[in-house]
Structures are given as structure tokens and as C-alpha cells.
């Protein structure tokens, strides 16, 4: 099978969906002529024309609002918000309109749209272009949320997202666009379910998006002394936590690794669920390992230090399983 990039896997998903269904449209800032701020939609304007690949003014609230109206009336829009940090601009349309229309209107009017965006650190883009705001989306019933952490998921989750009858927030990671991998013939797990990325009996680590890759690197380094089970949460809202709980009940230990600010994060929610559902099986409390509770600083050194990496994941894992205290905890 041929290698491709996360970026090209996303492009392929959009191309395949637009070829298969003429109601699919793209809209957003720079999606057409420019080819997407990170190059994902390159060439799509030429191929599908300006009625289906719509360059918009810099008007994030109305981009999402227009996508909602198009979805209500029969199209399948994929709206793009260039950075998830701009969620502050669009939360009314997202949380009060897209998420609640089906419910408020008694099931009559669904909003089958995808909001593509990207987040995360790694490019010294500073405090307003580097955040991980998935908890905002997970905190909103009615939204679906997925965050691909592999090349194959970039393709399959986006295809699946575009088939959903409900609004899906699809958050890519700016640090993964050049990652190489293969697109599997079938998805690694069904839509909405976690994927077990590595089997192990000593410790369960739950993660998603770019931190999944850091976690897999750490797991490799920990073996063979510590065998880590790595659960890729992939689809965060609604969250199917069954496979994760099964895993924690086998291993008795759970570490949750994310890039987002830790307080009130996805990791906090997972830790709470593990505590509730696995109390009698736990050898240690579920631990959260996330971004520091600070805005993202621009300096590469500070930015790197503000979020977990494979080395830190390794440290915490050794502590959890083997009681080896890391140097910084001495």
C-alpha cells in the first residue's frame, strides 16, 4: 500500500465525497483559490467550481451560520474555520444553533454539516493560534466531535463525518499534516468508537490527535518492561467509553494524555468516568497529563515545555507502574 500524508488523506476524503455526492460543498476562508491555509483543499476550486468550493469573506460566524442554513435545506456543507481558536467567534452558531436545532425543533430539522478546523501546538503560532479547544465541543450536547490522530483516520473519519445526520466538529492537528502513513481499506474502528492502537497489560493510556503519536512513541520506549495498552479515543462526543473501561479493568492503571489545558478538559472527564466505573479495579488513581494551565507561549522552548511529550509520558508511566520517581518529582 502506498504512503500518503495526513494532509493528502484529508484532501482525498473531500475529493471522494464531492465526487460521490453533489450536495457536498466546501466553504471557508481561503479554501478555494489559495488552496487552504495548510494546503488541504489545493486544486478543489478548479475541479468543482466556485458554487461548490466557496471562498468566503473573513466572517467566521456567518460562515458557520450559512453552512447551517445550507444543511437545513438539503446540502451537505463542509465549513472550514481556519484555526479552532476562532471558535470564540462562532460558538453561538455552533452551540446555540447547529447543536440545538434538531432538539429545539422537536426532531424536524437536522443540521448535517461538518465544521473542519485545526488546532494544537508545534508551530510557535502563539496563544490565539495554538489551542486545543475540544472540551468546548464535548461540553455541548448535539455536536459530534472527532479528532484524527492517524493518516488512515484522517481519511475515514472525515468520510464518516460527512455522512452524519448531525453537525460534526472535525479538529485536525497542525503538527500532523506532513505525517506519513497508509489509508486502510476500512476504518480502524467503526465511527464513534475508540481504536485500540497497542495491546498491553500493565497500563492503559488514553489519547487522541497528535498526543496519540507521542503516546505510541512512549509506549515503544517503555516496552518490554512495561506493556502499555494505547486507546485512541478518536470520536469524543458522544464518547463511547466502553472499550476504554474494559482496558482499564484489565490493566488497573489509567493515564490520559492530551494537549489541551488540563483543568476541565477531556482528560478530566475521562478521569472522572474511570473513577466512577473502574473504582474496584484501580491500583492507582487515574492520572491526567495535559497542557499546562496557561496560554500557549510563542517561544519554541516555552511552547514545547508547556505540553506533554513522549519523554514525559514515559516518566509518568514508569511512576504509575513501577513506582520509579522521575527526576522532577524527587
Amino acid at each position: 500500500m502506498t504512503q500518503t500524508t495526513y494532509r493528502d488523506a484529508l484532501l482525498q476524503a473531500l475529493l471522494d465525497a464531492m465526487d460521490a455526492d453533489e450536495t457536498v460543498i466546501l466553504m471557508g476562508e481561503e479554501v478555494g483559490l489559495y488552496g487552504g491555509a495548510y494546503g488541504v483543499t489545493k486544486g478543489m476550486l478548479d475541479r468543482f467550481g466556485a458554487n461548490r468550493v466557496i471562498d468566503t469573506p473573513i466572517s467566521e460566524p456567518a460562515i458557520v451560520g450559512a453552512a447551517i442554513g445550507a444543511a437545513m435545506t438539503g446540502l451537505r456543507p463542509v465549513a472550514e474555520i481556519m484555526y479552532v481558536d476562532f471558535a470564540g467567534m462562532v460558538m453561538d452558531q455552533l452551540a446555540n444553533q447547529a447543536a440545538k436545532s434538531r432538539y429545539m425543533f422537536g426532531g424536524q430539522i437536522g443540521v448535517p454539516m461538518v465544521l473542519r478546523t485545526q488546532g494544537g501546538t508545534g508551530r510557535s503560532a502563539a496563544a490565539q493560534h495554538s489551542q486545543s479547544l475540544e472540551a468546548w465541543m464535548m461540553h455541548t450536547p448535539g455536536l459530534r466531535l472527532c479528532m484524527p490522530g492517524t493518516v488512515s483516520d484522517a481519511y475515514h473519519l472525515l468520510r464518516d463525518a460527512m455522512r452524519q445526520p448531525d453537525p460534526v466538529v472535525f479538529i485536525e492537528h497542525k503538527g500532523l499534516y506532513t505525517m506519513k502513513g497508509e489509508i486502510g481499506d476500512v476504518p480502524d474502528a467503526p465511527w464513534g468508537q475508540p481504536a485500540i492502537r497497542r495491546r498491553g497489560g500493565d497500563l492503559t493510556i488514553a489519547s487522541y490527535s497528535r498526543m496519540l503519536q507521542e503516546t505510541l512513541t512512549a509506549a515503544e520506549a517503555l516496552a518490554p518492561e512495561i506493556e502499555t495498552e494505547v486507546v485512541d479515543l478518536r470520536c469524543l462526543n458522544p464518547l463511547d467509553d466502553g472499550p476504554l473501561m474494559d482496558s482499564v479493568r484489565r490493566t488497573g492503571r489509567c493515564l490520559i494524555v492530551t494537549e489541551a489545558v488540563t483543568t476541565c478538559s477531556v482528560a478530566s472527564e475521562i478521569a472522572a468516568r474511570v473513577s466512577e466505573q473502574c473504582f474496584d479495579w484501580l491500583e492507582e488513581p487515574p492520572l491526567r497529563l495535559g497542557g499546562e494551565d496557561i496560554p500557549i507561549p510563542v517561544s519554541p522552548a516555552l511552547e514545547r515545555a508547556s505540553i506533554p511529550d513522549a519523554r514525559l509520558i514515559e516518566d509518568v508511566a514508569r511512576w504509575l507502574v513501577a513506582r520509579e520517581a522521575p527526576s522532577w518529582a524527587a
Binding site: M27, A62, A66, G69, A70, A71, M72, I109
Partner: peptide, 20 residues
Amino acid sequence: LGANAIVGGGIPHVVGAGIT
């Protein structure tokens, strides 16, 4: 397509309906 309790909330939806 919906009455709205957020002032201005439903306005952009007609733009999408217009695209459709």
C-alpha cells in the same frame, strides 16, 4: 427554519438557504 432566541442568530441561515 426556526424561530431564534439569540438576537440575530437565525439571520445567516438564510444565506445558506440561498446557496442551496
